[in-house]
Amino acid sequence: MTGEWPLYEVFVRGKRGLNHVHVGSLRAADDDMALHHARDLYTRRNEGVSIWVVKAADIAASSPDEKDPFFAPSADKVYRHPTFYEIPENVPHM
């Protein structure tokens, strides 16, 4: 379908001194739109929050347990995109 927008992963730094953490995903046609929507949806437009968005397809996935044979073998499918991080309680408004 030509109108399908790519999946973006959203990373948010709730305040200075914290790392960016993965908070979820969304669909957007381009980076600007992804940023705008990420701010609306995942930060409630909190001005002090820093946001990264990256196309899910561009993420190379690995995890500490990756060698574990009990993980599904390939990392080439969308549904294997990483959701490594727990949402920490200290990210505002989550």
């Binding site: 927008w5 969304l26 669909r27 739109m33 705008h36 929507h37 609306d40 949806l41 437009r45």
Partner: peptide
């Protein structure tokens, strides 16, 4: 037209 815009327009 899309759910993300639903949120943006309401904002």
């Amino acid at each position: 037209p899309e759910l993300e815009d639903e949120v943006a327009i309401a904002n």
